[in-house]
């Protein structure tokens, strides 16, 4: 098992990781809701709809390849991954469901 940053290069054989952002309805911003694996952007969008919105209508979804996100988080004491401290590859999280999106 690679626990020393093996995931930094993404999955060797598997599909890449995508971060999913959802705007539950007009007037609200997109919020991070989680992540998933998909081979490409279109299937990532399909999967995001299936997994994170149960295909609720009217929501707006962004999917972003996790590897393309650049991060800064001085509050987090990142000693372990120092060489790639601006990356969030391994960063899928489950922030609270956006306001007003009780059924997400």
């Amino acid at each position: 098992m690679s626990e020393d940053g093996g995931a930094m290069n993404g999955n060797r054989n598997g599909w890449p990781l995508w971060e999913v952002f959802v705007r539950p309805r007009r007037g609200l911003s997109h919020n991070h809701v989680g992540s998933l694996h998909a081979p490409d952007a279109e299937l990532a969008l399909h999967n995001a709809r299936d997994v994170y919105t149960r295909r609720q209508e009217g929501v707006s979804i962004w999917v972003v390849p996790a590897q393309t996100i650049t991060a800064s988080s001085p509050d987090e004491k990142d000693a372990f991954f120092e060489p790639a401290a601006d990356k969030v590859y391994r960063h899928p999280t489950f922030y609270e469901v956006p306001d007003g999106a009780a059924h997400l």
Binding site: N11, L17, H37, P92
Partner: peptide, 19 residues
């Protein structure tokens, strides 16, 4: 879906789902 969320949570620790 729950398996998927949990694998994603584990992936934040530096392993991949494949592994």
């Amino acid at each position: 879906g729950h398996g998927l969320y949990l694998y994603a949570a584990a992936e934040t620790l530096g392993v991949t789902r494949d592994e």
